[in-house]
Structure formats: structure tokens, C-alpha cells
Amino acid sequence: MDKLSALSMFVATAEHGSFSRAAEQLGKTPSALTKAVGHLESELGVRLFERTTRRMALTEAGHIYLEGARQALMQLQLAGEEVDQLQHELRGSLRLTAPPSFGPAFLHEVCCRYMEAHPQVRLEVDLNDAFVDLIDGGYDLALRDGPTDLPGLIARPLTENRIYLCASPAYLERKGLPVILDTIPQHDWLIFQHPLLNRHFWWLRQGDERIRLAQPAARMVSDNYDFLLACTLRGHGLQVLPRWSAEPYLASGQLVRVMSEYLLEPDVFGPWVHVLYLAHRRRTRKVRAFIEMLEGYMQERGIG
């Protein structure tokens, strides 16, 4: 029996938990899958499934073999894609996930450029704040600030996560009050609420000096970053902004950085934004091309 077919049928049986459901998914007969698994068991000299009249479950050897079989099938699929794309344009799907705030800040532009450059590639972009599992979610890559010490992932720094205090010129003119340490409680603050962020105090740095600052009372709070940013641009208060988001508005004059002698510590989000991808995906042309375009765009904007 063809080993590749047998591996595919074994993996499908393990994932569906029965020969009949796996056979329906693959368009084959249950007896064909039973025969394929039996062939593998004979070759290995171990049972891969414990079977009873009511259920079937992987043995310890089955769990070990399943992981290897999945990796082997994935590597063959990737190799086939790479060989095909040596001769043709990039094609297929590219799945990525990122926080919602990355979308309007820079990711939408990169994705549009990527689609224009590679019209045969279908993009699937999932914007959420959850740290999803790239394998379980079927993602090719992720963009994240925050923890990157996740097993099986390569973390490539994209841009430094510098944090600024910003306001619109209209707000500063209307308020008529300088923004210094002593006047912070008197200003209107638009504050982003996130379950991982400290709601009680901020840390400011000025050179080697580290200052603990009580978080000021908020004029408005929201769990949606872009909603708050729109209100900041309309002149309704001060907001804490990462540089990758603030830069175009600072360049256009829509926002002004205040207390520029200080840097806010990025808290749990960490000092860098990273591109995360699985080790076995590092050489795929689709992934490489997207990362190169992303890095090029960030460099073009001066925040790479």
C-alpha cells in the first residue's frame, strides 16, 4: 500500500475518532481505512489504536506516531508548494493573526500591497487580542507585542514598542494647561483598558531615572484602542500611544507628543513587536515575501 495514503488515512482516523467518519471525510470506504491502519501497525509491530465495540482511542505508540505523521505530511505539502512556486507565481492561502489596533495602523496597507504584488494568494486576516495557537488555528504567522517565549515559535523583532503621551493641538489649545508631572491629574485622559494592563500606575523613564506615576482619572475609558484614538484626534484629551501608531499623526501635525523627555514603559506588552511563525514555515516563499514586505513598509515609515 502507498505509505503516504496510509499515513493520511491514519491521521484522519485519529482526528475523527472513527473509521467511518474519517472515511466519509476522505471519500473512501471504512474498510480501506481499516486496512491502511492495519498495514501501518504490521509494519511498526505495535497497535496504534485500542479498539472496542463502542470506541477507539490512540495507544501511547499511536500518539507518538500521530505527531510524526502530521509533521511528515505537512513537510511534504510545503515542499510541494515550494517546488510549484519555483515555476509559478505565489498562490494558495496565507493566514495571519494580529491585534485589532495593528490593522488601521499599518497592517491594512501591507496586506493591500501584498495582494497587488501576488494576485494568486488569498489572505485570511484574523484581528484579535488573543494569543492563539498557530498550529491549532492553522496560521502561517502572527504579529504580537507581549510574550514571545512560546514553544515551537520563532520570534522576529519587527519594531520597537516605544510608548508616547500624545494629544491634538486643538485639545492643548483649548485646555491651556502645560502637560508636566504636576498637572497630569488636571488633564482629560482617554485610557485604554486591557485585562493585562496595570490600572493603578504607570512607569516613566527619563534617562536612568524610573518614576512611578499613579494612573490619572479617566475622562473616557474603552477596551477599543482605535475608538479612543479617534476621540484623541478630535481633541478630547490625552492618550498613551505606541510609536508605531502615533508616527503618521505626529508627522502630519494631527497629534503632538507631550512630555517627550519621558518614555512610558510598555508594561506587559514588552519592548518589541514581533513577527511569530512556526519553525517549519520559515522557508516558505509566501511567508518570506510577506515578512519582507512588512519590514520594508515599516522601514519606509521610519519605524522599522
Score class of each variant (00 low, 15 high):
L143Y: 00
V179P: 02
Q254L: 09
P242W: 06
R91M: 05
S5I: 11
K28H: 15
G137I: 05
E116K: 13
Y65H: 10
R210G: 04
G62C: 07
A289V: 02
P104H: 03
L4Q: 14
T232K: 08
I211S: 04
A218P: 09
G207P: 03
D208P: 00
L141T: 03
L255M: 10
R281C: 04
L76R: 08
D226V: 07
L40W: 00
M298T: 03
P216Y: 00
W203E: 07
P248K: 08
L4C: 01
D208K: 06
H236F: 15
S245L: 13
P248T: 06
F227L: 13
D267Q: 15
I180H: 02
R47N: 14
L238P: 05
I303Q: 10
L7Q: 11
M56R: 09
R282N: 06
E50I: 12
V121A: 01
D145I: 00
V275E: 09
A61K: 12
I135G: 01
L181F: 06
R219T: 12
L294G: 01
E173K: 13
G17M: 11
L233C: 07
R70W: 00
I184F: 07
I64R: 13
T34I: 06
G17I: 11
Y277Q: 14
H88I: 01
P178D: 05
Y171M: 05
A72C: 05
A12R: 08
E15W: 06
G302P: 11
G62K: 10
A57F: 13
H108E: 08
G80F: 00
L255S: 08
E292W: 00
H16F: 08
Q193P: 00
K28V: 13
R205D: 03
L48I: 11
V256Y: 00
A98C: 04
Y225K: 05
V275G: 11
L143N: 01
A218R: 05
V240L: 07
R285N: 03
L177D: 03
N161L: 04
T97I: 12
K175R: 15
L90H: 02
R205Q: 07
H16A: 14
A69P: 11
A246P: 08
Q206D: 03
Y65L: 07
H39K: 15
F49C: 08
P30D: 09
S168G: 05
P147K: 06
A57H: 14
P104D: 06
P151V: 01
T97H: 08
Q206W: 00
D223R: 12
L4F: 12
C231K: 14
S93E: 15
H194F: 02
G176V: 02
P195W: 13
Q239C: 11
P100N: 04
M298K: 04
A23E: 07
L172C: 04
L26D: 12
M1I: 01
G176M: 06
E50S: 12
E24Q: 15
D188K: 07
